[in-house]
Design a protein around this nucleic acid. Structure first.
Lengths: 152, 152
DNA sequence: CCAAGTCGGTTCGGAAATCGAACGTAGTGC
DNA sequence: GCACTACGTTCGATTTCCGAACCGACTTGG
C-alpha cells in the first residue's frame, strides 16, 4: 500500500512555493494592509501591533521576493515606503478568497470591509468559470486531475 | 496625522479571522492534501514530512473549527480518517488562488498539478465578475470601499 | 543652543513554537 | 512469540517570536 508519492517531487507544488513567500500570518496581514493603502513602516506596525523586528524581517522578505517595492518618498529625513508591485497586486484573489470565506463562515453580522470593482465601485463575485462547459460554478465542483478525488 | 484606525475594530476583519484558523503553513498544506484525497494521519505525515506532534495539533484544530471531520472508517483496529466538511471544501478558492499565483510567478515549466472542473474534467479560470458592469476582470481592478486606494 | 518628538529600524533576554527521536498502545500477520 | 502498521504522546534541543530598550537622523518648539 505504498501508493503515495505518485506526486512529482522534482517540480514542487505551486501552492507550497507560494506559501514559502506569503504563507505566514504576518505576511498575509501586511499584504492586506498594503491593499488597504498603508505604506509606511510605523503605519503598518501600529495597525497590526506587530513587533518591529518581525515587521522589519517580513518587509525585507517581501521586498526580496519582489512582492513589495521599497521606494524613497522623501530625502530629509530619508524615508522609504513599501508598495505592492504587480506581482504583489496579483495576490488579491488570495486575500479576496480568504475574506469571502471568512464572511461566509466566521462572520456574524455584516462584513466589516467591502471590496469593490474599481471601475464601477460596486461589489463583485469571485468564482470559477469553465470555458469548455461555458458555465460558472462554485468551490464544491473543483477537482484535481490525477488523485483519488477531493469531493465527497 | 493620526488618521489611522478609521477601521472598525469591533467587527474584526474576515481575513484576520480566517487566518486564525488556516493561516499557517502546515494547516494550508494539510488542506491541500485533503483536497488531493489524502485522509489518514500517516498518509499526510509522510507526504508533508511534518512532525507527528504538529500534525496531531493541526488536525485537532481543523476538526475543532469544523473544517475537517474525523470519521471512523474501520473498527478493528479502530482507525479514523479526516475529511473535508462543506466548510472545508469551500476553502478551495483560496488554494486555487495560491496555486494560480505560484504558477504564474514562481513556476518555471509546466505546473505540477492541474485542477479541473469536476463535471467536464477540463481546466478552468478563477476570476472576478462584476454584475453591475457585466464583465469579468483581473486582480488589478480590485479596490476596497473606504481606504486610500490599493492600486497605483 | 537644548529638549522633546517622530520615523525606521537593531539588539537583547525571556517565552513560545517547532523539531526529530524515542516511546506507547492497539491491533494484524506469521 | 516476533515483527510490523497506524496513530498518536512525551522529551530535550533548537528556532522563532515577543516586548522593551536603545539608536541615528531629522524636525519642531522655545
Amino acid at each position: 500500500m505504498d501508493d503515495i508519492a505518485l506526486r512529482d517531487r522534482s517540480t514542487p507544488c505551486s501552492i507550497e512555493q507560494a506559501l514559502d513567500l506569503v504563507g505566514d500570518r504576518w505576511s498575509m496581514l501586511i499584504l492586506r494592509d498594503s491593499f488597504r493603502g498603508l505604506r509606511r513602516f510605523d503605519e503598518i506596525r501600529r495597525d497590526l501591533g506587530i513587533p518591529r523586528a518581525v515587521l522589519s524581517d517580513r518587509l525585507r522578505r517581501l521586498v526580496d521576493a519582489g512582492i513589495l517595492a521599497r521606494r524613497r518618498y522623501q530625502e530629509h529625513p530619508p524615508r522609504d515606503e513599501y508598495r505592492l508591485t504587480d506581482m504583489g497586486r496579483e495576490l488579491s484573489p488570495i486575500l479576496v478568497a480568504l475574506m469571502r470565506w471568512g464572511d461566509r463562515w466566521l462572520q456574524d453580522g455584516d462584513p466589516p470591509t467591502v471590496l469593490v470593482h474599481s471601475t464601477c465601485g460596486e461589489t463583485f463575485d469571485l468564482g470559477f468559470h469553465c470555458e469548455t462547459c461555458g458555465v460558472d460554478f462554485g468551490p464544491l465542483e473543483v477537482s484535481s486531475r490525477h488523485d483519488r478525488g477531493a469531493a465527497s
